[in-house]
Amino acid sequence: MVETSLFPADTDHVITTRQVNFFYGETQALFDITMDIPGRRVTAFIGPSGCGKSTFLRIFNRMNDTITGTRMEGEVRINGEDIYHNSSNVVNLRRKVGMVFQKSNPFPKSIFDNVAYGPRIHGTHDRQQLAEIVEQSLIRSALWDEVKDRLETNALGLSGGQQQRLCIARALAVGPDILLMDEPASALDPKSTIRIEDLIGELRNDYTIVIVTHNMQQAARISDYTAFFYEGSLVEFNATKKIFTKPREKQTEDYITGRFG
């Protein structure tokens, strides 16, 4: 189902999956998914609710491991390393693969402590060094100018959009290569959504971004590649332009033209 000729010849595939099946207890949520996700690009996962796109995203940083009664089959490689192999280290994996959640979830601590949390648990305690990481991360997430004078105030005092950008800064602070975003703007107002989208546009050159969204205009605006999922299967994966202009599959066309979903 995946066209290997889809990408330019020199494309570096950062995430590769082979025949991935996933189960919540007895219920199978993902069926035989094989796909290659290119590095330093934005890849969007679209599809109706319950199609498995979020579950698939959470496979890449093994967040599904935290749910009891789940089971994964198949192979997932990130930068060539089999991340579900017994010798694979989840902590190291999650340092390299950051995640931003649908509901912004800053810790009820100061803005500074939120961003410094990751570096601290990974062993950076030098105040000067931490301050630098915090500043850089907040600059990258386009939040620095708004919060630089109140880094010690509680993060929950920020607006929804600011909180989500803080979560992005917090994820960036541990120095990941890959950024997974699970509907990062779905709970935000239009203005904040635009800011998040702009931010993704700025990060695209330095990070491999995989974003789940139920907003097709958003996928069209920000992504280079789009994958359409339906009922746990990958229906179509192609350059975003092609998906939205000349979809190969009838199901994809029906979905993006709003006939269902």
């Binding site: 999650r94 950051g98 810790f107 949390y117």
Partner: peptide, 27 residues
């Protein structure tokens, strides 16, 4: 304590105990 705090902490590479110690117990 909301699940989101645990998820966020784990996703940053904290171990389960680090997550409990720094982001569940204090709250």
């Amino acid at each position: 304590v909301p699940r989101g705090y645990r998820d966020a902490s784990l996703a940053l590479g904290a171990t389960k105990w680090e997550t409990i110690r720094t982001n569940v117990l204090p709250y």
